[in-house]
């Protein structure tokens, strides 16, 4: 701005700074409006009873309520379960499928397409589809099981099976991970394997001492982003419990969040329910802050591991 008033041409340094600012401007505004301000505001609301109409200061009451809110604790445990089970399951399965596909001699392209395809299915459609497939009375899965003489479980109606049912859904959509792992596997220099083979190392040995160390940065990155995604796990669980409970959005419909027994109630769902269904937005802000702190822990791990991101040329 000041440069504009000066009669002589702006110095290259100022011009450069102006260019950078112009290029970054949209994002800078976005960062302030959609990130910095809301973060501060969340802290502010967490001390209030806020329902969009009025905000009343209530000190730490929202925080005290969290300590006794068993559904929040349940939701927290469910989300931890997903982080601890869903993420490793996806990684192992994704790596296994990738290993298989890169070794195929015939039809590798076809199989890659088949394994990738389900990951394109819109989340909502896939979820509704799985609730039907795993319906104990009308779904084909239990139908096939009983044809084989096995009494299938009540999947999304049984708290012991509901989350494993969601893991199945997630494994079905493994496509992205498979492609990423395939790329990593193909990057492993082939001469390493040849040298190991000459030394008489078996397939397992080769996997442990060559494949894993070489692709470990990719594995690590996928693990951390997987954890962060698992912490946001919402849509599949939200829809599954509503459809499986037979919720009809009508009076007398006895839908409880996270049906059955709250086993599908994840932390983001409880936050959503609290903020945008019950409109206890002050308390929801407390839940949001808890989510922030935990996410930050994982993000810091990621950033420490990949300091190279900030560097030139990576």
């Amino acid at each position: 701005m000041t440069a504009f008033l000066k009669p002589r041409a702006p110095s290259p340094r100022w011009r450069r700074r102006g260019t950078v600012l112009a290029l970054l401007a949209p994002w800078l505004i976005g960062f302030t409006v959609f990130f910095a301000y809301p973060m501060a505001s969340t802290v502010y609301y967490s001390f209030h009873r806020f329902d969009l109409f009025t905000a009343e200061f209530i000190g730490l009451d929202n925080y005290w309520y969290f300590l006794g809110d068993e559904r929040a604790h349940l939701a927290f445990r469910n989300t931890l379960w997903l982080v601890a089970v869903l993420v490793p399951a996806q990684m192992v399965f994704g790596l296994g499928v990738a290993q298989l596909v890169v070794r195929l001699k015939a039809g590798a392209g076809f199989f890659r397409t088949v394994f990738f395809l389900p990951s394109l299915v819109p989340t909502v459609a896939g979820t509704v589809g799985f609730v039907f497939l795993l319906n104990p009375a009308t779904g084909p899965v239990n139908g096939l099981l009983s044809a084989a003489g096995i009494e299938g479980p009540d999947w999304y109606g049984d708290p012991a099976w509901a989350k494993p049912g969601l893991v199945l859904l997630a494994l079905w959509g493994i496509g992205n991970l498979m492609v990423i792992f395939m790329a990593a596997l193909l990057d492993v220099p082939r001469h390493l394997y040849e040298a190991a083979a000459i030394d008489g190392a078996g397939a397992l040995r080769q996997f442990r001492s060559i494949t894993l160390p070489t692709i470990s940065p990719v594995l690590m990155f996928s693990a951390v982003t997987g954890v962060i995604q698992a912490m946001q796990y919402f849509t599949q669980a939200w829809i599954t419990s509503r459809v499986a409970a037979g919720a009809t959005d009508s009076p007398g419909s006895s839908y409880t969040p996270g049906y059955p027994d709250g086993s599908l109630l994840t932390f983001p769902q409880w936050l959503f329910q609290t903020a945008f269904r019950d409109f206890s937005m002050g308390y929801a802000s407390v839940l949001a802050l808890i989510m922030f702190v935990i996410s930050m822990l994982f993000i810091l791990i990621l950033l420490r591991r990949f300091r190279a991101f900030g560097d030139e040329g990576a």
């Binding site: 301000y37 505001s41 969009l52 109409f53 905000a55 009343e56």
Partner: peptide
């Protein structure tokens, strides 16, 4: 819209010191 957002941004920073932020008439 952008101008509106600037206003909101300003209002937002002051809202932190106010008690109520109400929606609707």
């Amino acid at each position: 819209m952008r101008r509106r957002l600037f206003t909101v941004l300003l209002a937002g920073s002051t809202a932190l010191s106010l008690t109520a932020c109400t929606a609707g008439a």
